[in-house]
Design a protein around this nucleic acid. Structure first.
Lengths: 113, 113
DNA sequence: CCTACTACCTTTTTATGCAAGGTAGTAATA
DNA sequence: TATTACTACCTTGCATAAAAAGGTAGTAGG
């Protein structure tokens, strides 16, 4: 397999990941209060790689849109952490995302037929 | 529901669509030779809206990457059309996309648990 | 020959993910 | 108490790519 091909393939995969990134982060936060580095680990486990430079601006955006809230908490080892949680608006938004996701899944299924 | 919220929701939906756009187009072309405007209609039916300014550059990119090929064909009514088809490389690429898509689906499923 | 329609394509704007670099708190150790 | 290591936060600048808007050209009908 050529290099160019691999590059394109990786790029396509990255595009798909980007598309659901916000959704994925909201899903993770919905489960429990969590801070940025934990979110990164959690997504990595699910094979959705995200880096700091991506997640911090995104979390800020979601906070500004009032979909998220956070509270500072001390850490036993290291600097304090921002624990994020969903606001009521955020939960509503997440529901919308879930519906969009189902639509997307059915769209792809249809296109395959 | 506020306006801001709707806007964010639409934006999130758009993001998701973007992520699978290339994949969706390849799926459509895989079924039969087809030209740009038909692709647009086909995707619209599947609730994946795309516009010309999006699809033409994308088709060119895929052609340049040798994933697509095309041939001109006369139309009974109007200017000639570029009918696109997948190259061998394109079919291989599509397989890769399908795998990525499955990965994404399982990632989301896992994050929900 | 003018209008309508279809089909192609390009230019410009905007959004956003990511690499890289930066600050600061804790803690172990030399 | 200086040094190093680690964790956690955040910002700047670049590259990519979708979408809006505008442009060219072929056919057809009145």
């Amino acid at each position: 397999m050529e290099d160019e091909f691999k590059k394109s393939m990786e790029n396509a995969a990255a595009q798909m990941r980007k598309g659901v990134l916000e959704f994925a982060i909201l899903l993770v936060i919905a489960k429990r209060e969590i801070y940025a580095n934990e979110i990164i680990s959690r997504l990595k486990n699910a094979k959705l790689t995200v880096v700091e430079g991506t997640i911090y601006p995104l979390l800020s955006r979601l906070k500004n849109s009032e979909l998220l809230d956070y509270k500072w908490e001390e850490s036993k080892s290291g600097p304090p952490r921002k624990y994020y949680s969903l606001t009521a608006k955020g939960r509503q938004f997440l529901k919308g995302c879930e519906e969009q996701w189902r639509n997307l899944e059915s769209a792809i299924t249809n296109l395959k037929k």
